[in-house]
Nucleic acid binder design. Structure first.
Ligand SMILES: [Mn+2]
Ligand SMILES: [Mn+2]
Ligand SMILES: [Mn+2]
Ligand SMILES: [Mn+2]
Lengths: 225, 225
DNA sequence: TTATAAAGTTAGAATAATCTAACAAATTTG
DNA sequence: CAAATTTGTTAGATTATTCTAACTTTATAA
């Protein structure tokens, strides 16, 4: 039985593996905001539980059991966020912190019921995929809006950053997942883009923002409903 | 900031104070299923946080802050149980264990939203009163069914024991809160009673069961709807 | 290829929550 | 009341999670 602390380490390891590939101790430590010795000793104890492969000075890798456990925590996190937004009517910018706690609740039926009530959603409110019960995570093939050429129509489907500040910024511009965006023009100087959608015929978005908006170019993509 | 462990101690102290009056260390220890030295050392640490008055060999009393904090945890527990039953459609016999965990979530808005969605319920699914945000707990004036005389009509409003086994027994007899029960007869020998309600014109309930069913004699009592 | 820097490890300590064994105080009982 | 029992306390140990300080290994760079 993993403690909440161990579960947070496993989640961090899983996410780092999925983005960086190689996991170093210092990445893990800085991700979790703990000292290197703290991460080092936890890494040894995760190894003892057979969730992690560890050899002195070598990169870290999760075992299959570690990966499965991590995915199950991430599943609980994302189902919770979806439940908070869809059922309890929270804003997408206020659910992460609560989910960070609720993901550690041990009650499979509780999360299965959320899943049912939500109709087995494929993604959380920020577009991140929800692992299935087996722990398998659908690989998304979205591209950042910043890579889209003028004239193209795309669908906004996910975010590569979901900080509350960024989400509040998107709220202020009426941007939400599922929207169809038309790229009107791109500014070579600062990578800003002019985008049209709904009642916003020409909204200027900075390069920073466009990098974080993940879109699908094919118009017939799976719709968020 | 209280840890989940501390919160469980405070809850136990609050509940013991409300039923026994005087709280002894051994009651606390046995309620929480920890050893006496464990309870003793936690009691000292709760005192250090100003939640408990403690003097060697004297009975334990919560401070006003301790009482307030305990009530807020109990509020979260009972709101959660109500939410699980009313919104998520769990049976009243399967919610306690989950609530025991969720009560430790720090997210006032999460529980406020539950409260709203439920329409500010006064009691949990087992009829126990939900403390208000101030930490005040409505005193109930129910009597056990075992004290009701034959011929009387009463309304079943709460339970003095809510173990899953007892709740499953009640399910098996079609008994639920809000029902109007008619006491048909009482058996002096073993305190069993014959009760009528709904499609059950004469159901025999043991003395043990009747002691645990809390009822209101006045017919015009607040209804559970 | 040595010197510096970065990354990782070990040692030692602190706090929280728990235990058993031993002892002390308070209460009950004959 | 004195003996026996129950209740409460202390001492000392264990495990989990964290830290700082000191040291070692690996990587980078002149
Ligand atoms: Mn999140
Ligand atoms: Mn977490
Ligand atoms: Mn309960
Ligand atoms: Mn609890």
């Amino acid at each position: 039985m993993a403690s909440p602390t161990e579960e947070n380490y496993l989640k961090a390891l899983f996410n780092l593996a999925n983005s960086q590939g190689e996991i170093t101790l210092s990445e893990l430590a800085s991700r979790l905001e703990v000292s290197l010795p703290t991460a080092n000793s936890m890494v040894k104890s995760l190894q003892k539980s057979n969730w992690l492969n560890y050899e002195k000075y070598k990169p870290l890798t999760l075992t299959p059991e570690g990966r499965r456990l991590a995915a199950s925590i991430i599943r609980k996190h994302r189902l919770t966020e979806m439940f908070l937004v869809d059922v309890m009517k929270f804003g997408w910018e206020e659910v992460h912190e609560v989910a960070e706690q609720i993901e550690h609740i041990h009650a499979p039926k509780f999360f299965d019921r959320m899943d049912e009530m939500l109709g087995h959603p494929a993604a959380d409110p920020h577009g991140s995929p929800i692992p299935d019960i087996e722990g398998k995570l659908e690989q998304q093939s979205y591209v950042p809006l910043s890579s889209v050429l003028p004239g193209q129509k795309v669908q906004l489907l996910a975010l590569s950053n979901s900080s509350a500040e960024f989400l509040e910024f998107l709220n202020s511009r009426g941007l939400s997942l599922g929207l169809t965006l038309t790229v009107i023009s791109t500014e070579r100087f600062d990578q800003s883009m002019v985008i049209g959608y709904l009642e916003h015929p020409s909204e200027t978005l900075s390069g920073k923002v466009c990098e974080r908006l993940l879109v699908c170019v094919q118009t017939a993509a799976a719709k968020i409903t």
